[in-house]
Design a protein around this nucleic acid. Sequence first.
DNA 1: AAAAAAATTAAACAAATGTTTGATTTTAAT
DNA 2: ATTAAAATCAAACATTTGTTTAATTTTTTT
Lengths: 209, 209
Amino acid sequence: MEFNDKQIQIIETAERLFAERGFDGTSVRDIADEAGINVAMISYYFGSKEKLMEALFELRVGSVKIRVESLLKDESLSPIEKVNMLIDEHIERVMQKQCFYKIMVGVLVTNKNPAILKAANQVKIRNAEVVSELIKDGQKKGVFKKKVDVILMLNTMVGTVSQSMMSQHYYREFNNQQDIPDEEFEVLLKRRLSIHIKTLFKAILTNEA
Amino acid sequence: MEFNDKQIQIIETAERLFAERGFDGTSVRDIADEAGINVAMISYYFGSKEKLMEALFELRVGSVKIRVESLLKDESLSPIEKVNMLIDEHIERVMQKQCFYKIMVGVLVTNKNPAILKAANQVKIRNAEVVSELIKDGQKKGVFKKKVDVILMLNTMVGTVSQSMMSQHYYREFNNQQDIPDEEFEVLLKRRLSIHIKTLFKAILTNEA
DNA sequence: AAAAAAATTAAACAAATGTTTGATTTTAAT
DNA sequence: ATTAAAATCAAACATTTGTTTAATTTTTTT
């Protein structure tokens, strides 16, 4: 489905509020007020609050697939380079769309709407499959260990990034970095996360005495 | 505050429903019906739905402190042994109280009630301080690296366990282990998580060429 | 056994919820 | 300029929400 400007404006307002207050903690009137529109417009454009949520997932999940899959095809990159790019890709994606990933976490905990849960799991399964292929390739080339638990490895990547994203204010406070600008701190956090997770993955994937 | 049997029964029913449907997705009537009590009993015992949530946190957070702190004091254990015990302690705690930790995740995302947010952060800060001490001790003894990002390390532990707990059905499916009993799978998952995270921590903490 | 306290109940309360209606305005097509 | 379609609106709709009331039952104390 295609969304016009007004629909996207409503979706993005809802995205922010859902992330801040949760789906059930946000009323359609809250959304309407923040977006500067009439309440009836939500039903008019989306049918219901639930469908609005589905539209949000359609908008956000739709754009993910392409970049991840094009990664695998690139023959010029080594398996380890691909894994590292996957990590950076994930960090960038989550930090860029923080609100959406907060909502995603909420959805995975309280699995109510089957359509949304399906959309959320779709991303997860796709990722696992792509990475599994990547690992097998690396094992064939002899650069990766034979026994690798791909799911646990991905759980570490996803979990570490989510956790760091959700508690970034606390991380900033702990390191006394409230003085530096927001954008700068975000760049810093992303860089540290990148190095951190790459170190972890190296320990999981590569052979060493 | 002390809770009588009836209060604990209500709290534990609420805990299950809050985990399944979220705080705002659960009505006081839902709780009353599931607990087999009258709606008014919630206000009677706790004052409000919000206070019931606070009571839940009081009940659950209260019991955490002791075991973690007694770990540090034990002089017979090496820093690496203590770290490993901390990992197992955390895995056990989360898997034992899955509902509560699902709620915890929800609270950390949509930070509304300040009292609850404070209780949640209290655990986090306490943990970070204890672990920081532990790391410093290990560094003094020359068994740990000099540069360790404690927060990121803890984010990895907490994030990996949360992520694995929340998507355990998917993990089970992926590994074709639906046939083995629930309890057995949980033991298996905990053991794998333990090995996995200990490997990660070793890579972060110890020196190797 | 009488009195006091605690626990439990059905009913009522106002406020908030998602959604629909029907009229009105704005935009696009003829 | 006229008509048709799309967008917007205030108001109303029926439910559901958390909480309170006031009466009744159960338990404890005297």
